[in-house]
Design a protein around this nucleic acid. Structure first.
Lengths: 341, 341
DNA sequence: CAAACATACGAAAACGTTTTAGTTAGTTTC
DNA sequence: GAAACTAACTAAAACGTTTTCGTATGTTTG
């Protein structure tokens, strides 16, 4: 690889001049600049990232902290799309990405240490146990951070609009005439609480009662867990006419149970998911669900993070909420068209 | 962050001594080593990756070249699992990973240039157009490379065993008494050719004829494309009793068509997929398919790549074939138990 | 006892940049 | 025509390591 010095030699100027010419300094003549740029191009010059970052303390590298242990990290379509779009946007903005983990080789290190070791200019955090002390250490550090689907004091956060999403979904279901709506929700997280809020809001406004048994917890992304919950719901003396699942994948577990009971969707029971996973929009019947704009989240995260890196003074922490989109699908039966209130 | 010099000062030795102590040189006394290590620990020392790699020309970074344009990169469960396991294994071996792309910021660069810019110690290439001239440039470079599911002259490759996989799958189907087996195969790639070879091998051995119309091309991972192919197959005067799809996701398209025709799986027609995607093992009926060990591929890739980086002399290019596993499922009807030959 | 050898350490150069603080030469200004 | 500017460049230090080649002791040898 060509170095600055080699270009300098070929152009008959000093290395500093070449550096300045390439970096747009104003005290270099136009002729020199164009000569240098041309030779650099010819020689296939690329700056040595290590040398540059050693000097500038900037790496043009963004850390990505997605789950660590356990599987579901990239398996979740929600997160793989998020990562994909984040990466794409980061690239456009001139940044590469590096996965942050708890240890490299036999060396044990904290997330923060890993970030410092690799000198990440900023970090995006998602899909992670936000109570973890190492995560908190990172969030409380001086490294620019953007979190996804979780808000921290004084930090920029990108949120999928779970309140509005759930509101839209439940409004739609109620609008089809359903009054006996059950919600199998996920574990107690910030996201879950938002969705519960949306759920209660709509039913409260419409004065639709919610029997305690209609709210039941399951694990996210775990069809077996949702199947069990479905079973419990179907056994009730007064079973719901519609079940909302924690996510599209979990719905599959419910579907299996419904099938096993010899019931039909949506003839005998209506269902809805949450996510907008491709697969569930491909199989029949199309699942009624709320598509989360995970690509939008990824893009917003990259933009926000880079902005906070490059304009540390003018940029102040903020919260961006990305709306989802109702996908009506075919799994919610029309009981009676309610008059829109 | 603490630097070597600060540790040196605290210990009353020179920077070189600290460096040597930390890197296990033999000309440092045991007492000094332990003193240095202790102080380094106390001061939370981590070597500056940039400085180190500037000097050693080693970054402990592996490049990952997965698809560039178009979506399906990480959406494919096959690739997301591959990436996940590759990353995990690489971490254990002391390497971080960096995505390689065609341009950073407004700068256009080739894959090779990106690798050089980031000084990747090695690169894994998968899920990419292997005919692309930039890909070939990278493969022909002096950077250690491991390719996935494609063999290049003089390069280490990790392959999912498509010949054996297809052989096992078709043997199983034929073993259930099927003689009219259609294969909707993907675009013409190395993988497709291997699967076709396996397909022909089994049917040839069993003296089962293959009408031309039973071999039909579709696009991988595209249910619409497979649906069309399915439609064509079902319209035949002598339609197959079993259809093999290019992959599990494509099967969904076929399923929709079969459904639309009012036919039942496997009562009226049998089907099989390829991949072993979680979703298709969760819905009912469980898809008969061949699970590819994508995690195994990722692990093998990381191990091979690191080995070739760290032992450049003893390591010679090789091909590793990772077997899959037949998942019998419920979508292939037993016509008559054939006697195993 | 001189010569040879070990042992434990340090000085200094080097990696390829960026950036500050000059330095030169030419041009205005009064 | 000296003083003050300006334009265009360069020298050199610095970033934090690694590594080669010394050097200063002390210990064996023959």
């Amino acid at each position: 690889m060509a170095t600055l010095r080699q270009i300098a030699q070929k152009c008959g100027v000093s290395a500093s001049t070449v550096s300045k010419a390439l970096n747009g300094y104003s005290d270099i003549s136009w002729e020199t600049i164009s000569l240098v740029k041309k030779t650099a191009e010819e020689m296939g010059y690329f700056p040595n990232a290590a040398a540059r970052s050693l000097k500038t303390n900037k790496t043009n590298n963004l850390g990505v902290l997605f789950i660590d242990d356990m599987q579901s990290g990239l398996a979740h379509e929600y997160f793989s799309a998020l990562l994909e779009s984040f990466k794409a946007k980061a690239e456009v903005l001139g940044y590469d990405i590096t996965f942050i983990s708890r240890n490299l080789g036999n060396r044990r290190m904290s997330y923060l240490e890993h970030c410092r070791y690799r000198k990440c200019d900023g970090v995006v955090i998602a899909c992670v146990d936000f109570e973890d002390s190492q995560v908190r250490e990172l969030i409380n550090s001086d490294i620019p951070v953007v979190t996804i689907d979780h808000v921290f004091n004084g930090r920029t956060a990108i949120l999928s609009d779970n309140v509005k999403g759930m509101t839209d979904l439940v409004s739609y279901i109620a609008g089809q005439g359903h009054t006996k709506i059950a919600f199998i929700h996920g574990e107690d997280t910030a996201v879950t609480r938002k969705r519960l809020a949306g759920f209660h809001k709509v039913l409260g406004e419409k004065r639709i009662g919610i029997p305690k048994e209609y709210l039941i917890a399951a694990r996210y992304h775990d069809p077996a867990s949702s199947r069990k919950a479905t079973q419990a719901l179907l056994k009730l003396r007064d079973p719901p006419s519609c079940i909302i699942y924690p996510d599209d994948f979990s719905f599959i577990g419910g579907m299996n149970e419904i099938d096993a009971q010899g019931m039909k969707i949506p003839g005998d029971i209506s269902v809805a998911g949450y996510d907008g996973q491709t697969m569930c929009q491909t199989i029949r019947p199309h699942l009624t669900t709320l598509r989360q704009d995970s690509r939008g989240l990824g893009i917003a995260a990259a933009e926000s993070l880079v902005k906070s890196i490059e304009n540390p003074v003018t940029d102040t922490p903020h919260i961006i909420t990305i709306p989802g989109e109702l996908l009506p699908g075919d799994t919610v039966k029309i009981l009676q068209k309610a008059n829109y209130t």
